[in-house]
């Protein structure tokens, strides 16, 4: 993916994306093998449905206004048996067969060989994402998922608290995340792009705001990105970012959030090691900008009512500025390899 150089650029990209918003989360605009298969099925079903509906409407019309001969035919018991049993028996058998065959081919789609494994845990109300780095070392991330194009990706899905459902319509169907269980989903993106996903199982409170983005990038770019993502966070060099870091640690952010390479190792909330490289704040609620990040820290309950992060209103504006600057500087993963 050709990345814009700065946060503002990302925002512009995201706005651009907004222009064609109806495509980022649409079942009928597939960007992956699985979604394309289902979209074909959907069109077939719409055709079938339209045909049958037209047939029933026509039959009603003929029963009301048809010639007496046609009405006599329609009024026979045999017509009931033919139209009510024989016709659906044949068409439904075909449909069922096609549906089952499609499930079979879904099972047969490439999944394990060279598959990229990503674990996603649904939490109230964000997504914990864990990649598998070199030698299987876990790489923690959150609320944004990057995948390589053309490579099957196997998602391991779990839930930390209540039931959630992982759904990226442009890439494929949804699978629930259920406490105590691990479910799986296999997706293969066919073209690079940004696909929006959203929690599809009501999980209370701000369920409506539990969205995320999947960025499908060329396999080589992905590999490079993954390598960068495995690195620890940027070490603050400027004075303001250093002050930001010490504020981050002193205010207790580290109790819930981790920034690898620092003493912040909390795991209750999203990992922030590379937060500056993300596109959004508040779990895809707002584009990642200085203003929005500030707003989320001080006024999060308005941005995302019910979210589990307390509002940090005690911070004075200069402190807040330093903190936000520090966070925005955490973008090793965004640097060109």
């Amino acid at each position: 993916m050709r990345r814009a150089p700065a946060g503002g650029g990302i925002l512009a990209g995201s706005l651009l994306l907004g222009g064609c918003g109806r495509d980022v989360q649409s079942v009928l605009a597939p960007g992956g093998i699985q979604a394309a298969q289902i979209a074909d099925l959907a069109w077939l079903l719409f055709g079938f449905g339209t045909l049958v509906l037209a047939m029933v409407v026509a039959a009603v019309w003929l029963a009301l206004r048809g010639s007496s001969r046609i009405r006599r035919i329609l009024a026979r018991e045999n017509a009931v048996l033919t139209l009510g049993i024989a016709f659906p028996a044949v068409t439904l058998t075909l449909l069922l067969g096609y549906g089952v065959w499609l499930m079979r081919s879904h099972l047969d789609l490439p999944r394990d060989r060279n598959a990229v494994g990503i674990e996603v845990v649904g939490e109230q109300w964000w997504w914990r994402v864990t990649y598998s780095g070199a030698h299987g070392t876990p790489i923690a991330s959150a609320n944004e998922i990057r995948i390589p194009v053309g490579v099957p990706v196997g998602f391991k899905l779990r839930a930390a608290d209540v039931i959630h459902s992982f759904w990226v319509p442009s890439l494929g169907g949804k699978v629930d995340m259920i406490p105590g269980r691990t479910t799986q989903l296999h997706l293969t993106a066919e073209r690079p792009g940004i696909y929006r996903g959203q929690c599809a199982e009501y999980c209370g409170g701000p369920h409506a705001l539990m969205a995320f983005e999947v960025m499908a990038m060329p396999a080589a770019d992905y590999a490079a990105w993954l390598q960068r993502a495995a690195e620890p966070a940027t070490t603050p060099v400027s004075e303001i970012t250093q002050r930001g870091q010490s504020l981050f640690l002193a205010t207790g952010c580290g109790a819930c959030h981790a920034v690898r390479g620092t003493s912040a190792t909390g795991t209750l909330g999203p990992d922030l090691t590379h937060i500056g490289a993300r596109r959004s704040v508040g779990i895809d609620t707002l584009p990642l900008t200085r203003e929005n990040l500030t707003r989320f820290i001080t006024d999060g309950q308005h941005v995302k009512p019910g979210n589990l992060m307390p509002e940090f209103r005690v911070l004075q504006p200069p402190e807040l500025d330093a903190l936000v600057t520090y966070l925005l500087s955490l973008k090793v993963a965004d640097r060109h390899g």
């Binding site: 079942v27 979604a35 298969q37 289902i38 099925l41 959907a42 079903l45 079938f48 449905g49 049958v52 509906l53 029933v56 409407v57 009603v60 439904l92 449909l95 096609y98 549906g99 499609l102 499930m103 879904h106 459902s165 319509p169 494929g172 169907g173 949804k174 699978v175 599809a200 199982e201 009501y202």
Partner: peptide
């Protein structure tokens, strides 16, 4: 008559969501 039209349409979308792969997309939407 209104019932016949609406219910038939609903029945047909019912057949659609009975198709498992389609339902993976349509479910909870």
């Amino acid at each position: 008559l209104g019932f016949l039209f609406i219910f038939t349409l609903g029945g047909l979308t019912g057949v659609m969501v009975a198709m498992v792969p389609f339902d993976w997309q349509a479910h909870d939407t």
